[in-house]
Computed example of a mutant assay.
Amino acid sequence: MNLAALRHIVENNPELIEENVPERGNSAATIGVAKLLVGNNGNVAALSENQRYHYETYIRPLVESVPCDGIFSADAEGEHDGCIGNGIIDDDDLEGCYILDEMLCQECQSLQARMDADD
């Protein structure tokens, strides 16, 4: 789990967590679990079974193996998602991606920077 990214989400954009919980779900409970994890330095083992469900289902997808949005449009067949890298944002870059609101892997970030420089 990327604790720095989770801390950023909890402190600056808890709506990301709320949006990840279905309408019938309990987003307040999920945010509570996220805050608990931040307060416990990401200690998932300290969570109850119910809290762990919230973590695994709604929080973990935001802080582990987060997919790159890609810089190109996805193809019509859905085979390529527009990412030129491995499709996953590197853990070291995840917090920065949330800060910049650009969910791009290193390869896509580099290409985007080169394309922006050419403009």
Results as ranks from 00 to 15, higher is better:
A34F: 03
D116E: 11
I59Y: 00
V33S: 03
N86A: 10
L111Q: 03
H80K: 13
N2C: 10
H80S: 11
D93V: 04
E64V: 09
N43C: 14
E64N: 12
L100M: 13
V63Q: 05
R7C: 08
I88Q: 04
I84G: 05
E11V: 09
D93Y: 02
K35L: 09
E107A: 10
C97H: 02
A34S: 09
R60C: 03
S110A: 11
G32P: 01
C68V: 05
C108A: 13
I71G: 00
E19Q: 13
R114N: 07
I71T: 11
D119L: 07
D69C: 02
V38I: 15
C105N: 08
L104P: 02
A5K: 01
A5C: 12
S65Y: 06
K35F: 10
L111Y: 05
D90M: 01
N86H: 03
G82T: 02
E15Q: 13
E64A: 10
N41L: 15
L104E: 03
D69Y: 04
I31E: 01
M1Y: 05
L37N: 02
Q109F: 02
V66H: 00
A117H: 12
Q51Y: 06
S27G: 12
G96S: 09
E15C: 03
G85I: 04
Q106A: 12
S27E: 07
M115I: 15
N12Q: 15
H80W: 07
A5T: 02
R7E: 13
S73E: 11
G25E: 14
A34V: 05
G39I: 14
C108R: 00
N2Q: 07
L104D: 00
A28R: 14
G87I: 03
M103N: 02
I89D: 01
E102H: 11
E15R: 15
D81W: 05
R52S: 09
A28L: 09
L111N: 03
Q51V: 10
G87M: 07
E107L: 12
T30W: 00
D75V: 14
N50K: 14
D118G: 12
A28E: 14
E49T: 11
Y53V: 14
V44E: 10
G32D: 15
L3H: 15
A4S: 14
E15Y: 06
I71M: 10
I99N: 07
M1H: 08
I89N: 01
G42R: 05
I89A: 02
V21S: 07
I89E: 00
I31V: 14
C105M: 06
I89F: 02
A34D: 02
D116R: 06
Q109V: 04
R60A: 05
E19R: 15
V33W: 00
Y55I: 04
D118H: 09
S27Y: 09
N20H: 09
E15I: 11
V63K: 00
A45H: 08
N2L: 01
N26F: 03
I59K: 00
I71N: 05
L16F: 06
E107Y: 09
E102F: 09
E64T: 07
L62W: 00
V10Y: 04
T30G: 05
S73H: 10
G85T: 14
N12H: 15
A113M: 10
